[in-house]
Design a protein around this nucleic acid. Structure first.
Length: 538
DNA sequence: TTTAGGG
DNA sequence: CCCTAAA
C-alpha cells in the first residue's frame, strides 16, 4: 500500500511540476484528483458537526491515528468554509491535504500542495498559480467571476446578509440569537455531504457530490493581513484564512459597512471593507483601531475554534481597546504618582489621552474601570490590566516618555550599563509597569540616535542646539504648538541637550567596552529617527 | 527570559 | 512599538 501511495505521489508530483511550468494540462490532472484506495475498514471518527479546530493537530492526529492505514476517507469537515492556502505552512498544508484526499503526502512543494488541495477542494483543474483561497469548495479566482449559487445556500447567505445589514449598522456585535439560528441552519447544511461520503464508495464521486453541494458560495476574497503585506503575499504566502472557525465556517459578503462573519460555532468576526490595491477586500474591523499587527494575533485565536460566547466578549474587549488603554494609563499614572510622591507629576494625562478618553462612551469607561479596579492594589509589577484584557494582546498605547523617565533611564544606564535593561527596569522602572525592558532598550536606542544626531549637527556650541539641532524636528514641534496651542498645551519638547550629551558619553564609554558595530545605523537614518521618537515633556 | 536588531 | 532570532 505504501508503495502504491508513493508511486502515486511521484506521479502527482510530476504532474504538478508540469503544471507549474505553465502548460495547462488540465486533462492530465483530472484523474489525479481521485484519492487512492477507498477503505471499508475505516471507522474514522465522526466529527458529527462538532467544532473541530482546523489547526488542531491533536484532533487531526486523533482522527488519523484511529486509522492505521495511510489512506482514509477525506474529511472535509476539517476544511470547510473559507480557506486560503497561501498562508499555510507545509505542515498545515499536509494536514489539509490529508483532510482533502484522505491520505498522507510527503510532498514538500508548497505550490504543489496548494494547487493539489485547491484542485481537490474545488474539483477543478483550473487552479491558478497564485491565489489559493477557497470558499466552500469554490476556488476564488476573481470576485467578478462569480459562479452561480445553489439555491439553498445563496438564500441562506442573503438572509444572513440582510440580517447583518439591518442589525449591525451601529453595533459590531450581533445578537447571539441571530448567531445561533444561523449556526443551526447552516450547520446542518454543511454536515450533509459528510454522510454522503461515508456511504459512498467512490472517492471521486464523493468529491464531486460534495463539491456540487458546496459549490454555492460566491467567491469572496478576503484578506486579514495588513495592506503592506499584500503586495508580496503571493510570494511569501502571507494571506491567511479570513475566517477559520473550526470545521464549519460561514463567511458572508458584505456590501459596504462593517459587518460580521458568523462562524457556525457561534463566533463572530468583525471585518470591514478595505481598499486593497484596487480590489475591495475586508480586513478585521478592529484591527485598525490601533496598529496593524495585532490582527495577526487576534486571528490566531480566531482561527482556533473558539467556544461560542467568548468570542463576542473578546471582540468587545478589542473594540474598547482604546478606552481600556487610556483608562489604564490614567490608573497607572495615578499609581505612579502615589508611589513616587517626589516625582514631578509629569503628564499624568496628556491631551491626547484626554481626547481618547472623551471619545469613549461613559459606559465603556465604566466597564473598563471596573476591570481595572479589580486588579488594583498589586500593580507594582505589571498587574494593571485584567487578564482578559491583557489576553486581548492589544497594542500598547503609545506612551510618550516623560523627562523623568528618560532621566531614570540614563541614570540606570550609567549605573548598570547599556544592555542591562532588565536590571534597569527592575530598579528604576518598577512602578512603570508599562515600560518593559524592551521599551527601555528601544528608548535608549532612540536616545543614542538623538545624541549622535545632535553632536553631528553642531560641533561644539551647546547654545545652538536648542534652536538648530534636529531643526526639522524642532520646527515641526513648533508648528504643532502653533497649530493647536490650546489643545496640546505641551507638544513634544526636545530632549534637553545635557541629557543627550550624557547619553553620548555613556554611549561612547559603552562603546569602548563593547564595540558597537552599527553606530552608523543609528546616525544615518537622519533626523527622522529623532523626530519619530517623540519624546515630549511637559 | 532577556538582549539585540530590524521593521 | 512590534516581532524575532539568539543566547
Amino acid at each position: 500500500m505504501l508503495e502504491k501511495v508513493k508511486k502515486e505521489e511521484r506521479l502527482r508530483l510530476s504532474v504538478g511540476e508540469r503544471r507549474h511550468k505553465g502548460e495547462n494540462s488540465s486533462q492530465k490532472a483530472v484523474p489525479q484528483l481521485s484519492p487512492p484506495a477507498n477503505d471499508s475498514s475505516n471507522n474514522q471518527s465522526e466529527t458529527s458537526g462538532k467544532c473541530l479546530k482546523f489547526s488542531d493537530r491533536a484532533a487531526i492526529a486523533k482522527s488519523s491515528s484511529s486509522v492505521t492505514f495511510i489512506s482514509s476517507k477525506p474529511d472535509f469537515s476539517k476544511i470547510k468554509g473559507e480557506i486560503c492556502l497561501d498562508n499555510l505552512s507545509i505542515k498545515e498544508l499536509h494536514e489539509t491535504f490529508r483532510a482533502t484526499f484522505g491520505r498522507e503526502t510527503t510532498v514538500k512543494d508548497k505550490l504543489w500542495l496548494k494547487r493539489r488541495i485547491a484542485m481537490g477542494l474545488t474539483n477543478s483543474c483550473d487552479v491558478p498559480t497564485t491565489s489559493f483561497t477557497i470558499i466552500n469548495n469554490t476556488l476564488v479566482k476573481n470576485v467578478s467571476e462569480e459562479e452561480e449559487c445553489g439555491m439553498q445556500q445563496s438564500e441562506e447567505a442573503i438572509k444572513v446578509d440582510e440580517k447583518i445589514n439591518r442589525s449591525c449598522e451601529d453595533s459590531p456585535i450581533i445578537s447571539l440569537d441571530d448567531q445561533h439560528r444561523d449556526v443551526s441552519s447552516s450547520g446542518k447544511r454543511e454536515r450533509e455531504p459528510e454522510e454522503h461520503e461515508l456511504k459512498n464508495e467512490s472517492p471521486h464521486t464523493e468529491i464531486t457530490e460534495q463539491t456540487a453541494a458546496k459549490r454555492v458560495r460566491k467567491p469572496t476574497r478576503r484578506y486579514i493581513e495588513e495592506l503592506s503585506e499584500t503586495d508580496t503575499r503571493e510570494l511569501n504566502g502571507r494571506s491567511v484564512l479570513a475566517v477559520k472557525t473550526g470545521g464549519h465556517c460561514q463567511s458572508l459578503r458584505s456590501h459596504d459597512q462593517p459587518f460580521q462573519n458568523i462562524g457556525l460555532d457561534g463566533t463572530t468576526v468583525v471585518t470591514r471593507e478595505d481598499s486593497f490595491g484596487g480590489s475591495g477586500v475586508q480586513v478585521p474591523f478592529v484591527s485598525r483601531v490601533r496598529g496593524g499587527r495585532r490582527p495577526r494575533k487576534n486571528f490566531v485565536s480566531l482561527l482556533n475554534c473558539h467556544p461560542s460566547g467568548s468570542m463576542a466578549a473578546e471582540l468587545i474587549t478589542n473594540a474598547l481597546e482604546v478606552c481600556v488603554s487610556q483608562q489604564e494609563s490614567e490608573n497607572v499614572e495615578i499609581a505612579v504618582k502615589d508611589t513616587l510622591p517626589s516625582e514631578q507629576h509629569e503628564q499624568l494625562v496628556n491631551s491626547e489621552t484626554e481626547e481618547m478618553v472623551n471619545s469613549c462612551s461613559r459606559q465603556q469607561l465604566q466597564s473598563v474601570e471596573l476591570k481595572n479596579l479589580g486588579s488594583r492594589g498589586n500593580d507594582s509589577d505589571d498587574v494593571t490590566m485584567e487578564p482578559s484584557v491583557k489576553g486581548a494582546e492589544r497594542r500598547k498605547h503609545h506612551r510618550a516618555w516623560s523627562l523623568s523617565e528618560v532621566t531614570k533611564l540614563v541614570e540606570g544606564v550609567s549605573r548598570y550599563g547599556a544592555g542591562k535593561w532588565s536590571e534597569i527596569k527592575r530598579v528604576a522602572f518598577a512602578p512603570y509597569s508599562y515600560r518593559t525592558s524592551v521599551d527601555l532598550k528601544d528608548k535608549w536606542r532612540n536616545l543614542l540616535r538623538a545624541s549622535f544626531a545632535l553632536t553631528l549637527a553642531d560641533k561644539g556650541d551647546l547654545t545652538k542646539y536648542r534652536s538648530t539641532t534636529s531643526s526639522a524636528s524642532n520646527q515641526a514641534n513648533r508648528e504643532c504648538l502653533i497649530q493647536d496651542k490650546n489643545l496640546r498645551k505641551q507638544a513634544v519638547a526636545p530632549i534637553p541637550t545635557p541629557i543627550l550629551l550624557r547619553v553620548r558619553e555613556l554611549a561612547e564609554k559603552h562603546l569602548q567596552t563593547t564595540p558597537h558595530p552599527s553606530i552608523s545605523k543609528l546616525v544615518s537614518p537622519s533626523a527622522r529617527t529623532v523626530e519619530d521618537d517623540r519624546s515630549g515633556y511637559l
